[in-house]
Design a protein around this nucleic acid. Structure first.
Lengths: 236, 236
DNA sequence: CGGTACGTTGAGTCATATCAACCATAGTGG
DNA sequence: CCACTATGGTTGATATGACTCAACGTACCG
């Protein structure tokens, strides 16, 4: 491991540069997190926490990608969201004081800070601006969840897959060759859309035929995002 | 209108008896809401607020039933939740400072208090315990939304209908003759489950054949809730 | 009494799930 | 180095759940 890999970011820096939720922390509070936090590395496939477990803190993602999913009856995953640098995860369970309702698994090696529950709670109590920001975040996510419910309930698999691709482009962007900056298995794509792996494969190759995407194994090159948006039936 | 119908409840009373979220308010704060709130009556079919609009406050439901839904592309409603006495609605949009992502329509005549945004925000800032309670509420709802996403994505319509019926029993209860204490059209049931009206009708009559329910127009008599739970595939 | 909203049933269609076979790739261990 | 295994990707055939369309019944209401 090279020296620069073990550099531990200062919370003040994170707060300013990447993590909007912490921007209202005072210098003292940032110091406190800095002192209490536990900086951790995780490899692809590692599990940060398991659905059903009680967790003693939340995670502030510095880099890498984590998938957050629920496990259905037959063991089928339903991916709820992805977390990348600047996102926080597990705060829902911590704040509602319930067991984790999801599992978090690493998709791309990541560095995260683990921050104990008490700190979060104490900041909510001591820093009204921070509390408000946190409320805003959860309310925003609630709005997104509501949209997702409506989509899954009303849209076809084809529309949803297109929408998911657009969403992934928005969240992770494209590299210089227009390849999506997140690499998922077909099964994972299916587990976001809420469909069978085979359906994703078939629809992706339809999209390819229609010159909307190019496929190179797990890498997806997005040729026509407007076309995907049109299929997805979203106007925004 | 009879005299007792226009009685305006005191917020202190609501806070203690019905509305858990306000239990941490100080006496002064409760007084303030009492002074600022607008007590309103709505009839079946009335709309409290429309999706896409900015709203200047939230609603604290005293009695009656309100359905909260999103409108899909072809105008199909997706019911997100119901609010009854003790619930608050529209707080999501108010707190995230976004336009309303849902419409709220009265199902059973109701009395609500309308409380201006500023009050809510100021209490979040001035009363940490209240802020925490609010965060808890939104986080809890977020957890429920995640479950619902998984359900809709993975379960059959039959399973979901059974689950919705169980949920309605839990939320609204049964009267002395085992009739569900909320009366919905078949279309509304379909709009919770996320299916077509005809499918609900067919499945309900299957449930009737299987002696799980009896049907009397819009009134649903629940004969075998364990059976419904079993069909719904929930263990909790 | 006509109108409107809701409920019901049947028939036909289609999107999607399921099942099964097969291929490609990479890692493992003898 | 090769068989072995696991994992993921692909394709085809088939089954079916659920939607759509259409017709008709029912109830309530002004």
């Amino acid at each position: 491991m090279k020296q620069q890999d073990v550099f531990i970011p200062f919370c003040e820096k994170c707060a300013l540069e990447t993590n909007a939720i912490f921007k209202h922390l005072t210098r003292d509070e940032a110091e406190k997190i800095n002192f209490e936090k536990d900086f951790r590395h995780y490899k692809r496939g590692d599990i940060l926490y398991h659905e059903g477990n009680r967790i003693s803190g939340f995670y502030c993602v510095h880099n890498g990608i984590i998938k957050v999913f629920k496990t259905g009856l037959d063991g089928k995953e339903q991916i709820i969201r992805f977390a990348k640098g600047g996102d926080i995860i597990a705060y829902r369970s911590v704040l509602s004081n319930e067991p984790a309702c999801t599992t978090a698994k690493v998709i791309e090696d990541c560095q995260v800070c683990f921050i104990p529950t008490e700190i979060l709670i104490s900041f909510v109590k001591s820093n009204p601006a921070f509390a408000l920001e946190l409320v805003k975040l959860t309310c925003h996510e609630l709005g997104e969840a509501n949209s997702y419910i409506t989509d899954i309930a009303q849209k076809t698999v084809r529309e949803r897959l297109a929408e998911v691709l657009v969403q992934l482009v928005n969240d992770f962007g494209l590299d210089e060759s227009k390849f999506l900056r997140i690499s998922l298995t077909r099964e994972e794509l299916a587990n976001i859309v809420g469909t069978a792996t085979e359906s994703v494969i078939r629809l992706l190759s339809e999209f390819k035929t229609d010159k909307l995407v190019e496929l190179n194994g797990r890498k997806i090159k997005v040729l026509n995002i407007k076309g995907l948006e049109k299929i997805s039936n979203v106007f925004n």
